[in-house]
Design a protein around this nucleic acid. Structure first.
Length: 419
RNA sequence: GGAGAGAUGGCUGAGCGGUUGAAAGCACCGGUCUUGAAAACCGGCAAAGGGGCAACUCUUUCCUGGGUUCGAAUCCCAGUCUCUCCGCCA
């Protein structure tokens, strides 16, 4: 959510920066609504003052007049709320502004590769895809999931289920022990206001799984990412600067409809309606967002380093960023069967964009109140990490080596194979 | 699911029709005292929005939404949430 005061001050740069994100704003409309809004506020306040004075005077002769004023105030109020709603609707559907160092571009083709890491293994056989491997091991069952649930779900069984759990635990342990995150086990369901706070609503309602409820005024959604619920932990709060930064980590299932991606990655578990993800969220002073973004991204890359998976770090272009982000790094892991890198983590700074939507503020040492900065990143997407481990650690006989870093979590299983 | 109680500022908690944005305490900030600190004493301390270059000023807000009244934190109605007891249950 953008601050109307800031927009007022920087009309041109505001429109220009949104254009960088391929969004055309009706800037004239915003200006006009803002003007009307303030105009009506002034009118209303004047009347309220008059009314207040009358009641203070306790002068019975003026009581009739006070009643008339009430009627007038009511009229103005209803106009006011119409205008205000229209303005808010526009403002709440505009994405965050990109930072200056974000490359300009329409889509992912303008993303900038920062660096490649790790060593891509040279297989002396044709590496199999994760779904072939999983299917042969009888540990990934897509057909069964289709039968019980529908497309884009999967049963993970036996040692791969263990591996999935091991990955999750390994990641969380790393983040709480080495990176100073606080572990959280949050609700997996969020209400409408919470979804608005992080920017999933109102614009991306169709991507969400909504829970059927009798009460239309109490809408509930399965979280599409723990970012939603973790970031909203500071909703409506005024924090003390001494409490910052706050860093939360959670491993949760994520639920997404992925509308619009049908036909893409239909095979395997790259793109599922449900998947596990270890999520990192930081609440910081707004001026340390950029610094925290580097730190958070390092926390995520550290997991890939420890798992010895080859990956690259990519700076997203303005056209490829998510709605709430001002700057995003993607981490892409090497997928041998596809002979390319695929997204496994996305770390974003949102500046104060989400904080304004959530009304999450803090008090600095001078006791000034300001909105906090929020960041979120995957550390990492567990489902996709499972894929990466399967494919990168496969042997010619279709068995899977367990990465060194995961061994403490694998109940002495060192190699995953049929037995 | 049944029966009660409650929701007030960062927290605890008074107020139950008229200068109450709201007592008191805690926390916090400033000052006096002190070699320094503590204690004690004195003073300050809500947020959002509007107007103003500014000093400042106005409006709104005592869970939410309606209603009564010239006037509501206070009365009425509906809803939400919390707590206690009982039942049920992983």
């Amino acid at each position: 959510m953008h601050n109307i005061k800031d927009i007022r001050k920087n009309l041109d740069s505001f429109a220009k920066l949104l254009l960088k994100r391929n969004v055309k704003v009706a800037i004239d409309k915003i200006v006009q609504l803002d003007k009307e809004n303030r105009n009506l506020i002034q009118k209303k306040e004047l009347l309220e003052k008059e009314k207040k004075d009358i009641s203070k005077s306790k002068d019975e002769k003026l009581f009739k007049k006070s009643k008339d004023i009430s009627i007038e105030i009511e009229k103005i109020s209803s106009d006011l709320s119409l205008i205000k709603n229209e303005l808010d609707d526009i403002l709440s559907s505009l994405p965050n502004l990109p930072l200056a160092d974000v490359p300009e571009g329409k889509d992912e083709s303008s993303n900038v590769e920062i660096k490649k890491y790790g060593k891509i293994k040279n297989f002396d056989f044709k590496p199999k895809s994760h779904f072939e491997l999983g299917n042969n091991l009888n540990m990934l069952d897509f057909e069964l999931a289709t039968k019980t649930t529908g497309s884009r779900f999967v049963f993970v069984k036996n040692h791969l289920a263990l591996l999935e759990r091991a990955l999750s635990n390994f990641m969380i342990d790393t983040h709480i022990n080495k990176n100073n995150y606080l572990e959280v086990s949050p609700p997996l369901i969020a209400n409408e206001n919470t979804m608005f706070g992080t920017g999933q609503l109102p614009k991306f309602e169709n991507d969400q799984f909504e829970i059927v409820s009798d009460d239309k005024n109490d809408r509930k959604f399965l979280i599409p990412t723990a970012e939603v619920i973790l970031t909203n932990m500071v909703k409506d709060k005024i924090l003390d600067v001494k409490d910052l930064p706050l860093r939360f980590v959670a491993s949760t299932p994520c639920f997404r409809k992925e509308a619009g991606s049908y036909g893409k990655d239909t095979k395997g578990m790259i793109r599922q309606h449900q998947f596990y993800k270890v999520e990192l969220v930081s609440i910081v002073e707004p001026n340390s967002c950029s610094e925290e973004l580097e730190r958070m991204t390092d926390c995520a890359t550290n997991i890939l380093d420890q798992l010895k998976l080859p990956y690259r770090k990519v700076l997203l272009s303005s056209g490829d960023m998510g709605f709430s982000a001002e700057k995003t790094y993607d981490l892409e892991v090497w997928i041998p069967s596809e002979n390319k890198y695929r997204e496994i983590s996305s770390c974003s700074s949102c500046g104060s964009f989400q904080a304004r939507r959530m009304k999450a503020r803090y008090k600095n040492l001078k006791k000034e109140i300001n909105f906090v900065g929020t960041l979120n990143g995957s550390g990492l997407a567990v489902g996709r990490t499972l894929i990466a481990v399967l494919e990168n650690y496969q042997l010619s006989d279709g068995t899977i080596e367990v990465p060194e870093a995961l061994k403490p979590y694998m109940n002495n299983v060192e190699k995953i194979g049929k037995n």
